[in-house]
Design a protein around this nucleic acid. Structure first.
Length: 105
DNA sequence: CTTCTGACA
DNA sequence: TGTCAGAA
Protein backbone atom coordinates (compact mmCIF):
# COMPACT_ATOMS: atom_id res chain seq x y z
CA UNK A 1 0.00 0.00 0.00
CA UNK A 2 1.25 3.39 -0.75
CA UNK A 3 1.52 4.86 2.67
CA UNK A 4 0.58 8.49 2.52
CA UNK A 5 2.36 8.86 5.82
CA UNK A 6 5.74 7.98 4.50
CA UNK A 7 8.23 10.80 4.97
CA UNK A 8 9.11 12.33 1.64
CA UNK A 9 9.72 16.07 1.62
CA UNK A 10 12.02 18.28 3.61
CA UNK A 11 10.67 21.33 5.41
CA UNK A 12 11.52 23.70 2.59
CA UNK A 13 9.65 21.55 0.09
CA UNK A 14 6.71 21.16 2.45
CA UNK A 15 6.66 24.91 2.98
CA UNK A 16 6.53 25.46 -0.76
CA UNK A 17 3.80 22.85 -1.16
CA UNK A 18 1.78 24.28 1.70
CA UNK A 19 2.36 27.82 0.43
CA UNK A 20 3.80 28.95 3.72
CA UNK A 21 7.11 29.74 5.31
CA UNK A 22 9.49 27.39 7.03
CA UNK A 23 9.15 29.33 10.26
CA UNK A 24 5.40 28.82 10.17
CA UNK A 25 5.73 25.11 9.66
CA UNK A 26 7.91 24.94 12.75
CA UNK A 27 5.33 27.00 14.60
CA UNK A 28 2.64 24.53 13.66
CA UNK A 29 4.80 21.69 14.85
CA UNK A 30 5.39 23.51 18.12
CA UNK A 31 1.66 23.83 18.63
CA UNK A 32 1.14 20.17 17.83
CA UNK A 33 -0.78 20.79 14.64
CA UNK A 34 1.49 18.47 12.73
CA UNK A 35 4.06 15.91 13.74
CA UNK A 36 6.49 15.30 10.90
CA UNK A 37 9.01 12.49 11.04
CA UNK A 38 12.62 13.09 11.92
CA UNK A 39 15.56 11.74 10.03
CA UNK A 40 18.84 10.65 11.55
CA UNK A 41 20.32 14.08 11.15
CA UNK A 42 17.40 15.53 13.07
CA UNK A 43 15.88 17.13 10.01
CA UNK A 44 12.12 17.07 9.70
CA UNK A 45 10.63 14.94 6.98
CA UNK A 46 7.08 15.81 5.91
CA UNK A 47 4.92 13.08 4.38
CA UNK A 48 2.20 13.48 1.79
CA UNK A 49 -0.37 13.22 4.53
CA UNK A 50 1.38 15.96 6.47
CA UNK A 51 1.37 18.25 3.45
CA UNK A 52 -2.35 17.72 2.99
CA UNK A 53 -2.81 18.46 6.67
CA UNK A 54 -0.70 21.59 6.24
CA UNK A 55 -2.92 22.85 3.45
CA UNK A 56 -5.92 22.17 5.64
CA UNK A 57 -4.36 24.04 8.52
CA UNK A 58 -3.70 27.05 6.33
CA UNK A 59 -7.27 26.91 5.10
CA UNK A 60 -8.61 26.86 8.63
CA UNK A 61 -6.32 29.66 9.75
CA UNK A 62 -7.39 31.70 6.75
CA UNK A 63 -10.99 31.15 7.71
CA UNK A 64 -10.40 32.94 10.98
CA UNK A 65 -9.54 30.01 13.21
CA UNK A 66 -6.64 30.17 15.61
CA UNK A 67 -4.10 27.51 16.48
CA UNK A 68 -6.35 26.08 19.17
CA UNK A 69 -9.29 25.95 16.77
CA UNK A 70 -7.22 24.29 14.09
CA UNK A 71 -5.98 21.73 16.55
CA UNK A 72 -9.56 21.06 17.55
CA UNK A 73 -10.62 20.52 13.93
CA UNK A 74 -7.64 18.31 13.26
CA UNK A 75 -8.46 16.16 16.26
CA UNK A 76 -12.10 15.89 15.28
CA UNK A 77 -11.19 15.00 11.72
CA UNK A 78 -8.84 12.32 12.95
CA UNK A 79 -11.58 10.99 15.15
CA UNK A 80 -14.15 10.94 12.37
CA UNK A 81 -11.63 9.23 10.14
CA UNK A 82 -11.13 6.51 12.71
CA UNK A 83 -14.85 6.16 13.21
CA UNK A 84 -15.46 5.94 9.50
CA UNK A 85 -12.74 3.33 9.19
CA UNK A 86 -14.27 1.17 11.87
CA UNK A 87 -17.69 1.66 10.35
CA UNK A 88 -16.95 0.41 6.87
CA UNK A 89 -14.33 -2.02 8.10
CA UNK A 90 -16.33 -5.18 7.53
CA UNK A 91 -19.93 -5.76 6.55
CA UNK A 92 -20.28 -8.53 9.12
CA UNK A 93 -20.84 -5.81 11.63
CA UNK A 94 -18.59 -4.66 14.42
CA UNK A 95 -19.27 -6.86 17.40
CA UNK A 96 -18.17 -4.24 19.84
CA UNK A 97 -19.29 -0.95 18.42
CA UNK A 98 -18.13 0.66 21.59
CA UNK A 99 -14.56 0.46 20.41
CA UNK A 100 -14.61 3.70 18.52
CA UNK A 101 -14.06 6.81 20.47
CA UNK A 102 -12.31 5.80 23.59
CA UNK A 103 -9.97 8.49 24.76
CA UNK A 104 -10.63 11.92 23.35
CA UNK A 105 -7.67 13.41 25.18
C1' DC B 1 19.22 22.37 8.12
C1' DT B 2 18.02 23.53 13.62
C1' DT B 3 16.69 26.45 17.66
C1' DC B 4 15.88 30.86 20.03
C1' DT B 5 14.68 35.73 20.51
C1' DG B 6 12.73 39.93 18.96
C1' DA B 7 9.33 42.81 16.54
C1' DC B 8 4.98 43.81 14.01
C1' DA B 9 -0.42 43.85 12.65
C1' DT C 1 -2.36 35.72 18.45
C1' DG C 2 0.02 34.52 14.35
C1' DT C 3 3.61 35.74 11.06
C1' DC C 4 8.09 37.46 9.66
C1' DA C 5 13.14 38.30 10.40
C1' DG C 6 17.67 37.79 12.06
C1' DA C 7 21.39 35.37 14.86
C1' DA C 8 23.98 31.41 16.82
Amino acid sequence: MSDSRTPLYAISVAADLAETSIQNLRSYERHGLVEPGRTEGGTRRYSDHDVTQLLHIRSLLDQGLNIAGVQRVLRLEAEVAGLRASLLRDDAGPADSASGARDSR
